[in-house]
Design a protein around this nucleic acid. Structure first.
Lengths: 335, 335
DNA sequence: CTGTTAGCGCTTTCAA
DNA sequence: TTGAAAGCGCTAACAG
């Protein structure tokens, strides 16, 4: 790596002259500027980020901690974050908590050492369940601002980006009711999460408001991935169901494919709506109707929120906002 | 952030004493060490990475550039990289090239400024097609070592981690032939990539070696995601096919689901094998037989290879190796 | 218009 | 056993 010092020696000027020339300071004459720039170009000079970071005490880097990168939703949020960050010339350091409290805490620990200017994160299941969030309180351990998305906690005082989980499912359920469905089932593999609860409430609320009976038999909770196929199969056969709402990214897809296999016509016999997006909807046939969380927008919004806070020191530590992103229902071939 | 300086003032000792005490130097007496450590603990001291990086000229950070994080394969490799790196206390900075040459180049540019010690990457489609790889030659632009995986280029002289693409498909095809299949189709959405070509060769080779006729009609190339469903449907109906080999992560799943919809029994009428892993195999019903690329292992191997090179300055710039990872065929319900 | 200097937080000789 | 000082690469206040 070429350094300022080397360039200075080469050009027979002082280090600060080079620095100023490169930063287009009014101090330096056009002649010198040109000479310096040409040399910098020639020797492929790039300012050392570490030195810069030390000097101006900011890293232009965002720490991102997500529970699971194999989940399409988180991958897509990450996609949005990376995109928005790089547009604003921020880098992103990614850590994966694997749903573990300890990993999450450790990632925080590793990154709160002058490596990042702020955090974007979605909480690990374990963290949420234990409800231990002291490692995240900007008041003690952490100095850097945090933006939480999707899996948030009201115990943490910071900016948040969420969707209206209850409303999203409520709308989808209502849509099914209005198209004449009577026995609507609810399938979820995130029942243990708060957002899972909210989604279920949306479902129940829609049934009640429309005079349909609620019934625990109509609710399937999936605990283990490798038993999902069997669980769903048994569930669909056990009773008359004419529609399914899935609260997560994958079980809706499985429902479509399994229902087909069992001889149901989709959507004639059973209509199905899940969470997802254009890409994932192609994994079932027929293409699944889905509630789009607009994961990429969530990532972008979180990033811009964080950067705004980072760069406006004025509104520091106050005025935290929670942004509710909108979701949209895309009726495709399964409704 | 607490600094050494602050601790020093607090304890009424010099900065270097604190530094040495914390690094367990033989210079410092046990008494002092204890006092210093307690204070450090109390004030939650963590050495500033930027300062350290500047000083010892290494960042303990790996730059990762992948074409597409929504692709399950890349997400899983990234998962493996992150895991292996964090075990060795390296951070990972992630950039996404979105299959674009320019993005890739820019990411390299941004990171080659003392931000990372080395790179792990898989090349963008555009880079591969243009065959422009000068931005990656460690001989000029880049000083940091690179490890390439999956989408590699023989024009770049560096460590590589790949699978035997041809052999993997060859084995799977042979497996189908041995179980009595005669009209085996080949479906791919990566025909434009070199690895796509290799996979197709494996398929053809297996047919020829087993005395089966090759026939271009049996090969379906998918160009556009949103036409995949229609293309596959037409393809499956256009001729007698008793098996399908998919060369990518998603088309196999689509084939299973669509074949079912068309009334074929799977695997009785049509057997199907695709690339994938345990998680993705659940997205079709019945659960798809798959060739596992062991993406997580690829990530781990690449990471360990890079770190080894980073830490053994001795074997610098020589002796580059290409590691061929093994793949495994998991026969599930679709064969 | 250009150069000197101090200092960001840290490690590491070398001197006391 | 401890401390002073230099230096990693950079910026910026100040002097010339």
């Amino acid at each position: 790596m070429t350094t300022l010092k080397e360039l200075a020696k080469l050009l027979n000027v002082s280090i600060s002259t080079v620095s100023k020339a490169l930063n287009d300071s009014a101090d330096i004459g056009p002649e010198t500027k040109k000479r310096v720039r040409d040399a910098a170009e020639l020797y492929n000079y790039k300012p050392n980020k570490m030195a810069l970071g030390l000097k101006i005490n900011q890293t232009k880097t965002i720490g991102v901690i997500v529970p699971d990168i194999l989940n399409h939703f988180f991958a897509k949020v990450l996609f949005g974050i990376e995109k928005a960050a790089s547009e604003k010339s921020y880098d992103t350091i990614v850590c994966i908590s694997h749903e573990s409290y300890q990993n999450e805490q450790q990632s925080i620990n590793v990154l709160t050492n002058g490596r990042v200017d702020g955090f974007i994160m979605s909480l690990a299941t374990e963290t949420l369940e234990k409800n231990h969030v002291n490692h995240l309180k900007t008041s003690h351990s952490i100095k850097q601002p945090i933006v939480l998305f999707d899996r948030v906690s009201e115990k943490i005082n910071c900016d948040k980006v969420v969707i209206d989980d209850q409303q999203a499912i409520y709308n989808a359920t209502k849509y099914l009711i209005e198209s004449g469905r009577q026995k609507i089932a609810f399938v979820s593999d995130i029942a243990h999460l708060e957002i899972g609860g909210l989604r279920q409430e949306g479902y129940t609320k829609a049934l009640i408001e429309n005079g349909l009976p609620t019934n625990d038999q109509l609710i399937l909770t999936i605990d283990q991935k490798d038993e999902a196929h069997q669980d769903i199969k048994r569930f669909l056969l056990s009773q008359d169901i004419d529609a399914v709402i899935s609260a997560d990214n994958t079980s809706g897809i499985m429902c479509v494919n399994i229902a087909k296999d069992l001889g149901f016509k989709v959507p004639k016999d059973i209509a199905i709506i899940g969470f997802g997006d254009e890409e994932t909807s192609y994994l079932s046939f027929p293409q699944m109707s889905y509630i789009n969380q607009n994961a990429e927008d969530i990532g972008r919004e979180a990033t811009e929120l964080l950067i705004r806070r980072l760069e406006n020191k004025s509104e520091k530590a106050v005025n935290y906002k929670t942004i509710k992103m909108s979701t949209s229902l895309y009726p495709k071939a399964t409704t």
